[in-house]
């Protein structure tokens, strides 16, 4: 089983890296691109087993450690 976790800065949090990437895209001619937000992506390998239990455990880990709820949101997918 594999878990894919995407962590992004919250809407209210300034993301200067995203803004800089957006500006660079515009310089390269990709003017159709609006706001850019830069986040993180994690892939976690897990032993096969109870998916719901795994989801609960990982959601806890995301909340406690992998993301900082003050500044970040996360999305957790299991496959």
């Amino acid at each position: 089983m594999k878990a894919k976790i995407t962590i992004t800065p919250k809407r209210a949090v300034l993301d200067p890296q995203g803004k800089t990437v957006q500006n660079a895209l515009a310089h390269l001619g990709y003017t159709e691109v609006g706001a850019v937000r830069v986040g993180k992506y994690l892939e976690l390998e897990l032993a096969d087993g109870d998916r719901e239990a795994a989801r609960r455990r990982l959601a806890e880990a995301c909340h406690r450690f992998l993301s900082n709820p003050v500044i970040e949101d996360y999305r957790l997918e299991l496959e």
Partner: peptide, 17 residues
């Protein structure tokens, strides 16, 4: 201390990068 929740808020990337 912020990460530990002993102080509120967070420190993020400098606006200037």
């Amino acid at each position: 201390l912020c990460e530990a929740g002993l102080l509120p808020g967070a420190l993020i990337r400098n606006r200037s990068l």
